[in-house]
Simulated scan of single mutants.
Amino acid sequence: MNRLRIAFLASNNGTSFRAVYEAIQSDKLDATAVLLVTNKNHSPAFAFAEEHGVPSFHIPTKGVEADADKRLQETLVGYGADLVVLSGYLRKLGPLTLETFKGRILNVHPGLLPKYGGLGMYGRKVHQAVLDNKERSTAATIHLVDAQYDHGLTIATEVVPIDAADDISSLEIRVMEAECVLFVETIRRIIGGQLPLPF
């Protein structure tokens, strides 16, 4: 197949966006990072994209969801995205974008789904809940995106054991590392045809 054209959506740091971008740059993935879209124009992900020559767009969403959905859909189509990767994008996608890219939008979640997903369950809140429940393991989970938070089909999971000495910070670091490795591996499998698009 032709080089996979990947678009990224991020609200803050975009850690997995950076990991995938770096894998592309080091020829570990036969893909192209076609653009980065953020809903926060001062996000570190936006700055990283601009610094590395990835076309970057700020599309605000609060209070203008329908307009943002249309702008996002048109931008993704205009840049010829084959796959849309959410890297800490903390907004729901609208119906135009979801329909146009059905089966081609992936998100990474820092916990097991569905147990530790849903509205308000993101970032350190997930790790706190996992520790509060005295779990022996957690996970990085990649799933398809649909109209509900953390609801779509699970594509890949990497279990992360929890150590007795773990706190939120240490667990966050290890899960984030697992997320990055898992996303790069999942995209490699998509490129290799083991996980054909659309899902």
Rank of each mutant, 00 (worst) to 15 (best):
86 L>P: 01
86 L>D: 01
114 P>F: 12
105 I>W: 02
97 T>V: 11
116 Y>F: 15
106 L>R: 03
96 L>E: 15
101 F>M: 02
102 K>H: 15
114 P>W: 08
120 G>Y: 12
105 I>G: 01
103 G>N: 06
85 V>W: 14
102 K>R: 15
82 D>T: 01
120 G>V: 08
90 L>Q: 07
93 L>T: 03
85 V>Y: 06
84 V>S: 02
111 G>P: 06
76 L>H: 06
88 G>K: 06
87 S>Y: 07
81 A>F: 00
88 G>V: 05
87 S>M: 07
85 V>F: 14
79 Y>S: 11
104 R>F: 05
92 K>A: 10
83 L>K: 03
92 K>P: 01
102 K>E: 15
86 L>C: 06
88 G>A: 13
97 T>R: 01
103 G>Y: 02
87 S>N: 01
84 V>Y: 04
96 L>W: 07
120 G>P: 00
80 G>N: 13
107 N>R: 00
101 F>A: 00
114 P>D: 10
105 I>Q: 02
113 L>Q: 11
99 E>G: 11
115 K>I: 14
109 H>G: 09
101 F>C: 03
103 G>I: 02
103 G>P: 03
114 P>Y: 08
87 S>V: 05
76 L>E: 08
81 A>L: 10
89 Y>S: 02
103 G>R: 00
112 L>A: 10
90 L>I: 14
103 G>E: 09
102 K>D: 14
87 S>G: 08
98 L>N: 02
111 G>N: 04
106 L>A: 05
117 G>C: 12
91 R>L: 11
98 L>F: 10
89 Y>M: 01
93 L>C: 00
120 G>R: 06
